[in-house]
Write a protein that binds this DNA or RNA. Structure first.
Lengths: 107, 107
DNA sequence: ATGATTGTGTTAGATTATCTAACACATAAC
DNA sequence: GTTATGTGTTAGATAATCTAACACAATCAT
């Protein structure tokens, strides 16, 4: 109950701030979305909202871009990592480790 | 090195989002600043920027307001709590507990 | 080699968000 | 009864964001 980790995931940051935090131009940030590397939410009127997690992701992307990696390849890596993580998660579920950590306790 | 707690303190949230997160009107949020209950940063062109910590603070304020507590009193409580915390901190410093936790380690 | 894709800058026009300052007004404090 | 508190609302100005398009160099694929 100490520190709420969801802060890292909450999509509350506008693109201008993300641009400052990452050093990327807004153009780049939107383009990486177009290439399906990043998935901001939208406010009712259409403004993009990012999380700190997204910011970290963008920094990783920027680093890879500097190494010359193309967005397409970055996306492939991401998909691979995601599948791997899903396998890991299902395995954990089977073992009941989730219950051990987050399961029902005394009211 | 796991999760960066500074996320909670970084002033990256605009007033519109804060309004949504807290349920307070922008007018109220600005007024509480005027009453020195909250201290957003400003972007170069003057836009207010809040942290998650500020959002929590605002929720506390909203609760106290509902109980009928005036902003002046809330401010007094805040100042009292701040002084208390400072005493606690100085005491800790004297005991060297800070070093124990955050002190220099092997490179 | 040429034709397509990638990545980014820049521009234009429209819309949305935020800012300050002021007026209004009901309620509460002194 | 006057002053302070708390909030809504309005107006006008400025800033932030959006989409779509054009440009263009660099890279990739055939």
């Amino acid at each position: 109950m100490a520190d709420n980790p969801s802060y890292k995931e909450r999509k509350v940051i506008t693109i201008g701030v993300v641009s400052e935090l990452t050093g990327l131009s807004e153009r780049q940030i939107r383009y990486y979305e177009e290439r399906k590397l990043i998935f901001p939410e939208r406010s009712p009127k259409g403004n993009r909202k990012y999380s700190f997690s997204d910011v970290e992701q963008l920094i990783d992307i920027a680093n890879k871009r500097e190494e010359g990696v193309q967005t397409y390849e970055i996306r492939q890596e991401m998909l691979k990592a995601k599948r791997k993580e899903e396998r890991r998660y299902r395995k954990e579920l089977l073992r009941g480790e989730i219950n051990a950590r987050f399961g029902v306790q005394k009211e």
